[in-house]
Amino acid sequence: MSLLQVEGLEMHFPVRGGLLNRVVAHVHAVNGVSFEVQRGEILGVVGESGCGKSTLGKCLVRLNTPSGGAFRYDGVDYTHADHEELMDYRSRVQMVFQDPYSSLNPRLTIRDCLTEVILFHRPHEAEVRDVDEMVLELVQKVGLRADAVDKYPHEFSGGQRQRIGIARALACNPEFLIADEPVSALDVSIQAQVLNLLMDLKDEFGLTLIFISHDLKVIEHFCDRVLVMYLGNVVEELECETLHESAQHPYTRALLGANPINHPRERRELTVLEGDVPSPFDLPPGCAFAGRCPIAEPRCSESRPPLEEKRSGHRAACFLVE
């Protein structure tokens, strides 16, 4: 059985306005997303800004309560779980955020920050073991020096802070990590260090990961499978190993075509999409991508293509993909 099952997940944010501050519209941030994650795999989520990938991540740790659909973790439905149940859930599923500076408390030393998590989520273990020792172990696991524990977040560089963010997520000994753009704010040489660290920790702790990024190159390198999102919908799901050959959805093809190249020898005309992204307030009835799609047909703007299995392990939401 899959570790995480997501079915028709929706997240609509109300927009208030007018004299009486009534709800005047909804932003359709996530619009009926379904997928499964198997134990031990790394699932990538890729898409451009505003496609709902971060909201999806936040729904899955219940920082947002989904407005529709459901998700089950290890067979248990946590979509509307109460506070007690969430405590247990969040000690198993943790999140790493994009900006490691704003997600760390500037007034806590690294020791205080990690001790808090350990005492809260692993109280029984903390009774029999020396908490300081556990903190030190974590800090060294993420590749920081032992003297880092008594420093404050501002004393570290961006890459080091992201390591602390990862250490904090690992402090409650989770099984599942949702990483939201964990390397996007980092320089390339530091990005490689953090990606390698995540890979090592995944093996060591037997983690399952959802890795959210806008960078297809990073996803391709790091993940097993990828969900491509466009305007709140998954438009394609496929294996990363054969991403270039098997990507079928015109949006995925456009992303691949717009991605910068590895070597000047591969120079080509970059794919340029015409038109603008439709407003998430007022979604078109048909395929959300139809307005910019180079191969769209009239039926594309009439009804929304379902996300169908095209071949084993490959789903696409497009009428024109065989």
């Binding site: 390339v188 990005q191 391709e220 390198h221 270039h244 590895n262």
Partner: peptide
């Protein structure tokens, strides 16, 4: 140190 696209260096 940059990941290369389409090189099947996945997981390395």
């Amino acid at each position: 140190s940059i990941p290369k696209s389409g090189r099947r260096e996945h997981g390395k």
